[in-house]
Amino acid sequence: MSERILVVDDSKLVTDIVKMRLEMYGYAVDLAYSGEEALQKIGDLTPDLVVLDVQMPGIDGYEVCRQLRANPLFEELPIIMLTSMDDKRAGFEAGVDDYLNKDLDLLDLPNRVKLLLGM
């Protein structure tokens, strides 16, 4: 069984690109288009890793991360923040495990996923 990854971004273009990239490496990918949707889906999906955008309408990626870290079921869940912003400190303070720039690092995403999943 392949590892399940939840990709959360309000841009369909970004989610489609990330999904295609990760599926090429054999990962099962689920999508959410808002922080609220991610928090609703995560309990049912029980992903092995989350790829999370920062800037989204409603609940942003930082708050999603803080809520996951506050829940004992998800406090150890690997989270990669994928964004075009440069404020990495806020992401790490919220509890992310890794940070990738959408514009520069997207090709490296499968490698970072593999490292965080311990494979």
Rank of each mutant, 00 (worst) to 15 (best):
M1K: 14
S2N: 13
R4I: 07
R4E: 03
I5C: 02
L6T: 11
L6A: 12
V7F: 10
V8H: 09
V8P: 15
S11I: 01
S11W: 01
K12C: 06
L13M: 09
L13G: 02
V14P: 00
V14D: 02
T15I: 07
D16K: 11
I17M: 14
I17H: 08
I17C: 09
V18L: 13
V18G: 05
V18D: 06
K19F: 03
M20L: 14
M20H: 07
M20K: 11
R21D: 14
R21T: 09
R21M: 10
E23M: 13
G26S: 08
G26V: 15
Y27L: 06
A28V: 09
V29C: 03
D30T: 03
L31S: 12
S34W: 01
E36H: 08
E36S: 11
E37G: 13
E37V: 10
E37P: 15
A38H: 13
A38L: 06
A38C: 13
L39F: 10
K41M: 14
G43P: 15
G43K: 15
D44H: 07
D44Q: 11
L45F: 08
T46K: 11
T46N: 12
P47A: 01
P47T: 06
D48A: 07
V50K: 04
V51C: 04
L52T: 03
D53S: 01
G58M: 00
D60H: 03
Y62P: 04
E63M: 12
E63F: 05
E63I: 11
E63S: 07
V64Q: 11
C65K: 09
R66C: 08
L68S: 15
L68C: 10
L68Y: 05
N71M: 13
N71E: 13
N71V: 14
N71R: 15
E75K: 15
E75L: 10
L77P: 05
P78K: 06
I79T: 15
I79Q: 08
I79F: 06
I80P: 04
L82W: 13
M85D: 14
D86E: 15
D86V: 04
K88V: 06
R89C: 09
A90Y: 01
G91W: 04
E93C: 01
E93S: 08
A94H: 00
D97W: 05
D98I: 08
D98V: 08
D98Q: 07
Y99C: 00
Y99P: 00
D103W: 10
D103N: 14
D103K: 05
L107I: 04
L107C: 04
L107R: 05
L107Y: 07
L109K: 08
L109N: 12
P110R: 05
P110N: 02
N111R: 12
N111C: 02
R112M: 10
R112E: 14
V113G: 15
K114G: 02
L115W: 03
